[in-house]
Structures are given as structure tokens and as C-alpha cells.
């Protein structure tokens, strides 16, 4: 955790996040994210052995709803906001590669 991230890391992360970076942005983000991550190393100043992570502020459990049908929204209204639609469906350019 002592090494801040490399330019390759930033490039990989941008790809995972579906963002394209210019060369200039790549340099800038590498520096800025590195600074933030160096600051984040203060988290290691606490002894956190055996501490449970908190993903959620309150311990609510079993929040469920009844299995009852509610009206869906008008399909015309759904597709009205679609960038592209055809035949009642959302249209996208060709898909390269299968879903995981």
C-alpha cells in the first residue's frame, strides 16, 4: 500500500469504468488519484485487526415486501426516453462479446 498507482493502473481502471482518457488526462488523473491514495494510507495508522467492516449504518434485517403485482409503467412512456428504440425495444449498436 506504499506505492501510489501507476499510469497503467489508471488506464486499466478507465477501461473497467468505460471511460476514455486523453494522454494529458491520464497524466493528471494518475497524479491526483495518487495524492488521494497516499492520504488514504493514514487508515493504516489504526490497528484494525479483528474489526468487522461496516457496510451499512444500521442493522436492519429482513426488509421484504409482499409478492403482489403493481402496475408497470406505460411502455410508450418508457421508450419515450430511450436514445434509440425499435419494435417496442431499446436499440443498441452491435454487441461484441457475450455476457459473463
Amino acid at each position: 500500500m506504499t506505492e501510489p498507482l501507476s499510469r497503467e493502473d489508471v488506464s486499466h481502471v478507465a477501461k473497467l469504468a468505460r471511460l476514455r482518457l486523453t494522454e494529458e488526462e491520464l497524466v493528471r488523473y494518475t497524479e491526483q488519484l495518487g495524492k488521494i491514495l497516499v492520504h488514504a494510507q493514514d487508515l493504516n495508522s489504526l490497528d484494525l485487526a479483528g474489526v468487522a467492516p461496516t457496510a451499512h449504518p444500521f442493522g436492519l434485517v429482513n426488509v421484504v415486501r409482499q409478492d403482489e403485482v403493481h402496475p408497470s409503467i406505460d411502455p410508450a412512456a418508457v421508450l419515450a426516453e430511450a436514445p434509440d428504440a425499435e419494435d417496442g425495444r431499446f436499440a443498441v449498436p452491435r454487441i461484441v462479446g457475450e455476457a459473463p
Binding site: 488514504a40 487508515l43 493504516n44 489504526l46 484494525l48 474489526v51 468487522a52 467492516p53 461496516t54 457496510a55
Partner: peptide, 8 residues
Amino acid sequence: QALKVRTR
């Protein structure tokens, strides 16, 4: 690590 700090 951040989630553990949250606990603390």
C-alpha cells in the same frame, strides 16, 4: 480498510 474504520 475504510469499512473497518467506519466501524471504529
